[in-house]
Computed example of a mutant assay.
Amino acid sequence: MSRLFLLSAAALTFAVSLPATAHVSADPALAEPGSYFRTALRVPHGCGSSATTAIRVGIPEGVVSVRPQAKPGWQVTIETRKLAQPIEIGHGQKTDTLVSAVNWSGGKLPNEQFDEFGLVMKLPNQPGAQLWLPVLQTCESGEIRWDQIPAAGQSAHDLPRPAALIRVADAGKPMVLAQAHGHNHAMPAAPKAGDIAIEQPFARATPAKVGGVFMTLKNTGGSADRLVKATSPVAESVELHTHVKDGDAMRMRPVEDIPVPANSQTALEPGGYHVMLIGLKQPLKEGAQFPLTLTFEKAGTVTIQVPVMKAGSMGDAGHGGHKH
């Protein structure tokens, strides 16, 4: 198979936009270890065309304190479980009873509307942990169980009814708040090489042997720099590319470097500069992530983690490219 054919296939993959399943999700979904974390379960639709009348949220192991948010028109009930021995819950307090589930019932959420059901939880001090919250959505007609948890090596995006997920940040990685679509989302601070911050990196899901990586390179220093190299263990080779007009068509071409002007920024985006992954060792699946090492002429080298968003994504920073 020729490299020209592969690159053409990649261009087609970049142009495709697939619909995302609107599942019940936690927002925000990234938390500091051991924190008191406020999140909300977002319910984007009913059961078919039927209105939602009740929501039950299961509380995962390791969460030692839960307070649900009151909602006008809805009744809140709490399910608990007894422990064999009391445990510490902070501030010198102990308990032998933990919340196992929270229920909202008695209201009515029409199918064509969405709503959020808030929780404050004391999360475990377990950096890198994934906390899955199974949700039972009951409607006037039928119900949906959002309770599937991916197996090892599987992505939640491969499941038709995934449970809601809260990720606990890795140790040593600072947290900042980023604005996206009017909501605050906790996100890791942008990695940096010298004066250059690498913001909002992402790749698009693809079954092909080639893929693209996009990001914004923000230079806060007084000297211009250049991205001169990129490498990743997920591909046989990695090249710096741009798009150029060839007659009536736009074609990808490799470049020696990508300039980053002083006190300015360079966008690596679909239809422009980007990092090209050639000879992918396995398909890029939505929800996964992979390392990418960037080398700058002056700022040096930095390794970042690249999240994989849905095919056709333009890099929705707040939601990982999902539409809820």
Rank of each mutant, 00 (worst) to 15 (best):
K218W: 05
N219E: 02
N219Y: 04
T220M: 04
T220I: 03
G221Q: 02
A224L: 00
R226Y: 07
R226A: 13
R226G: 03
R226P: 00
L227W: 05
L227I: 11
L227K: 04
L227Q: 08
V228F: 07
K229A: 14
K229N: 13
A230W: 00
T231A: 10
S232K: 05
P233D: 08
P233H: 05
P233G: 08
V234T: 14
A235W: 01
V238W: 03
V238G: 08
E239V: 09
E239L: 14
L240Q: 02
L240S: 04
T242C: 10
H243M: 10
K245R: 14
D246V: 14
G247I: 05
G247T: 05
D248P: 01
D248V: 12
A249N: 15
M250V: 10
R251H: 11
M252V: 09
R253M: 12
R253S: 13
V255E: 06
E256Y: 03
D257F: 11
I258T: 03
P259M: 06
S264N: 11
Q265D: 06
Q265C: 03
A267G: 14
A267H: 13
E269K: 15
E269D: 14
E269L: 15
P270Y: 07
G271M: 07
G271K: 15
G272P: 04
H274K: 08
V275P: 00
L277E: 05
L280E: 00
K281A: 04
Q282I: 05
Q282E: 12
P283W: 01
K285S: 07
G287L: 09
A288Q: 11
A288S: 12
Q289R: 13
Q289S: 15
